[in-house]
Design a protein around this nucleic acid. Structure first.
Length: 564
RNA sequence: GCGGUCGUAGCUCAAUUGGAUAGAGCAACAGGCUACGAACUUGUAGGUUGGGGGUUCGAGUCCCUCCGACCGCACCA
């Protein structure tokens, strides 16, 4: 990674602590000095726990070690301008940076602008599959969650220099497509004859009606006399195409674009499934028994071997998965999948596929926990069986893309969440996303009000040495956390950290805004504060964009407030 | 029965991957608009991190064990 000025300064601090620790301990074996920002700001800007780690081996109390190391490091002349204080508290060594350090950090943001926090290309390729739904109906609320999580992770990864391919798998190879075809056919017949029976296991709900009408409009009533074997493939394919197109429209309306829409059926037809199975066979992890072809998944920890080709020659669902991931692992170093909670049993099998192809651990599964939707205090049934679906489009209509995406991403995948529709609908102003957007709009408003010449000087980083107030330093410090925050989002596959971070930035800006007037009487101070405001705007906009949320220049007043 | 994920304030969720006094937002209570946007803000109250044991300088985080919720355990997908 390219070193920048603040990083270099921090490296000097680490080096000083390292030297001090070596001087303090006779045998000189020192673990690498990790400086981390403590939760509690009273503990300084950065903190090291070396003394705690070394205490046992040195057979000395940690506090005593910490004091000694701190005293030595404090004497290091190289730190004079960047460090304000080094203190030893409870075994920790706390470092407080000088204002110049934070001023420099603001300067860096102004210089790099939109690229602040961006990582250099890391040469790592990742396949990220998420959102995938059966092509038998519209997207429902739950997919809103995986779409939000997956898309934000993908964006954050790209921002960090990872090469990401986002993928959507269309499960169109199984018997569910036949069910879809029969359901659609019934709807098609019902247009002419409302008493035509609907299949018992068909997909209820009226979403197939417009598709049936479209087909009738195109081809008329010519299927009415045909036998099922004749019309079924036509209806199944037509239904799938229409529904997948609709799913794609919804995803894109939600701000999510996939690089790849992979059909399972196509994997069969292209011969990829055969190739995948052959690749397994070549590695000796398949065998024939009871007329079927088995995969030796127990070799990699599964509790039983799995059939991949049935006795009658038809491949099981596992076959296209093998093929797909064989392909993925050739294109990417790592394949990540975000799946629903009903796919636990799947994790081990995917793991064995990776191991079978010689890349153990290369397939990673993130399970998004169950989501309960509540309306008016009652659980909304989301069963397609009952045709009682709450679609993602409904949600977008009700609460908007920004609010929905921010809401979904506030919670980590592994936490089961409750989605309260009534709350989302009735109290959208309480959604934290508006607080963050409001902060951004407020800065835009200030910038618009300032004379252009002043803005230009602020943008060039002039007079930043005027930033010394507590609220100013606190805000600058927060902004400096951004690169590390994005990295932790990627490493932890946890966009919630970015959502929370954006809230904290907005909050710190508000504190600053309340305490100090940006455009005041003293010109240099105004320039400096305007610079800080511009840097904040840059970071807020970037954070929001990574979350798939817009960063508006202005926001319309809420009706509720006007009535108050 | 076996296996997986989860359990944190009244509610919805965090917690820098093992760090210091577990934090936000809603809801509750008490204040604040003649400053660049009050969708704001200041403060109060709210906790045995499901229970118990263990590992160590240090545990919400790791291990064991109970309790509870959800989900898997097919030649279905």
């Amino acid at each position: 990674m390219k070193a920048n000025a603040p990083d270099a300064a921090l490296a000097r601090v680490s080096a000083a602590l390292d030297a001090a620790a070596k001087a303090t301990l006779a045998d000189g074996e020192i673990p690498p000095i990790a400086l981390e920002a403590p939760r509690n700001p009273e503990h300084g800007d950065f903190s090291s726990n070396v003394a705690l780690q070394l205490a046992k081996r040195a057979r000395r109390p940690p506090q005593q070690l910490a004091s000694e190391i701190a005293a030595r490091a404090a004497g290091d002349a190289a730190l004079g301008t960047i460090v304000a204080e080094i203190a030893a508290v409870g075994g920790f060594i706390n470092v407080r940076m000088a204002p110049a350090y934070w001023q420099q950090s603001v300067r860096e943001i102004l210089e790099r602008g939109d690229d602040f926090g961006r990582g250099a290309p890391a040469g790592e390729r990742v396949s990220l599959e998420f959102g995938s739904a059966n092509p038998t109906g519209p997207l429902v609320v739950v997919q809103g969650r995986t779409l939000s999580l997956g898309d934000s992770i993908a964006k954050a990864m790209r921002f960090c220099g990872v090469e990401v391919t986002t993928e959507w798998i269309i499960n169109d190879a199984g018997s569910q497509l036949d069910t879809l075809g029969r359901s659609l056919y019934a709807r098609y017949r019902q247009i002419a004859d409302p008493t035509f029976p609907f299949p018992e296991d068909g997909y209820p709900g009226d979403y197939l009606m417009p598709i049936a009408r479209a087909l009738r409009e195109r081809d008329g009533n010519r299927y009415e006399g045909m036998s099922e074997s004749q019309w079924l493939p036509i209806f199944a394919t037509f239904g799938r195409d229409e529904l997948v197109a609709g799913q794609q429209r919804t995803a894109e309306r939600f701000g999510v674009y996939f690089d790849r829409w992979q059909s399972e059926k196509q994997l069969h037809e292209s011969g990829a499934v055969k190739t995948g199975i052959e690749a397994l066979r070549a590695r000796g992890i398949t065998y024939e028994a009871e007329g079927a072809t088995w995969m030796r998944t127990t070799q990699f920890g599964d509790d039983k071997d799995r059939v991949i080709v049935r006795g009658d020659g038809r491949p099981t669902y596992l076959a296209p998965d093998i093929a797909y991931h064989y392909d993925k692992l050739q294109r990417a170093d790592r394949a990540i999948l975000i799946l629903g909670p009903d796919h636990h049993g799947y994790v081990a099998r995917l793991g064995t596929i990776a191991a079978a192809f010689g890349k153990p651990g290369a397939i990673e599964v993130v399970i998004a926990q169950q989501m309960t939707t509540i309306r008016d205090g009652e659980i909304v049934s989301l069963s397609k069986r009952h045709g009682d679906v709450l679609t993602l489009d409904d949600v977008i209509d009700e609460v908007g893309v920004d609010a929905a995406r921010f809401f979904f991403v506030m919670m980590n995948a592994d936490s089961p969440m409750t989605f309260d529709l009534t709350l989302a609908k009735a109290q959208t102003s309480d959604n934290p996303v508006y607080y963050v957007q409001y902060g951004h709009a407020r800065i835009a408003s200030i910038v618009a009000k300032a004379p252009p010449a002043l803005v230009a000087r602020a943008r060039s980083g002039e007079a930043l040495e005027r930033l010394v107030e507590r609220a100013e330093i606190a805000l600058a410090r927060r902004l400096a956390e951004f690169p590390a925050t994005v990295r932790s989002v990627v490493e932890g596959r946890a966009p919630s950290r970015l959502a929370r971070y954006a809230q904290n930035v907005a909050s710190d800006f508000t504190q600053f805004y309340m305490a100090h007037k940006v455009l005041g009487d003293d010109e240099p101070t105004s320039v400096a504060r305007l610079g800080l405001a511009l840097a904040t705007k840059t970071v807020l906009a970037r954070a929001l964009r990574l979350l798939g949320v817009s960063a508006p220049e202005r926001m319309d007043r809420l009706e509720a407030d006007e009535n108050a």
